[in-house]
Amino acid sequence: MRISDFDLYQALLKEKSGLTLTPDKSYLLDSRLTPVARKHGFATLESMSTALRGIPKPELVKDIIEAMTTNETSFFRDMKPFEQFREITLPHLLKARSSLKRVRIWCAASSTGQEPYSLAMLLKEEGAKLAGWNFEIVATDISTEVLETAKKGEYSQFEVQRGLPIQMLMKYFEQKGDRWALKNEIKSMVTYKYFNLLDPMAPLGRFDVIFCRNVLIYFDREMKKKIMENMTTLMPDDGFLFLGGAETVLGITDAFKLMENTRGVYIKPACTTIAPVQVKTA
């Protein structure tokens, strides 16, 4: 790819989605954008680039953004965040929200749905403990294509074996030929919406918990700061933010601090009502 074309896509992605495309990711452009060029009738990537320099069709720009957003995911990805959700977040919320019995969770880049559905299954496993409670999971993504996949809730044999315990597969999925379809009792717990993390967040409402894992790494420092500071306005004082293992707020914002003795669980610095996590001794 020509350097001028790389610059063009870099600027386009930054402007439309806030994503930072670094030169080490330039190899992704060829492999991901060639199908887009073909779909829109361009013989080469160069001819698509030329069209983009004019007044491109919004549909073409949307397809380019979708193709370049990373959709790496699996059920219970990294496991630890889900254990921490069950052992730290859930006990706190069950106590702190006992009068309202209402909890809202946002999966901020839900991709093909494995993360929100993992949370839904985890909550279902709690059984009678959550009777009478209303847990609402809102899952958003910038790609309408992955949102459609997520809503469908059907996965390949390979996908259901990455991270998903076999007992959960047996309990919450139905086999449809060589695919595995989530049962409605899990699917109905998640609401999907298209959302760009750079857009105003207030319309999404308040959230007690936000999962924003392995997303911020694709944004530059200023964008990360803006996104996290916007998120803090959506959360009560005792809200929880889950970031990915390679992500941090250090040197970016003071809106959140890492909860001691956790991995990737962030709370507001002024919060005094969440019980500290004790280190488990053998």
């Binding site: 699996s74 496991m79 044999q157 390979f158 074996q161 990455r162 991270g163 315990p165 076999i166």
Partner: peptide, 17 residues
């Protein structure tokens, strides 16, 4: 646990874990 073939290292690691 139960693995449906074909498998890869990631699936085995995930199930063992």
């Amino acid at each position: 646990e139960y693995i449906m073939k074909p498998f890869d290292s990631e699936i085995i690691e995930s199930k063992f874990s």
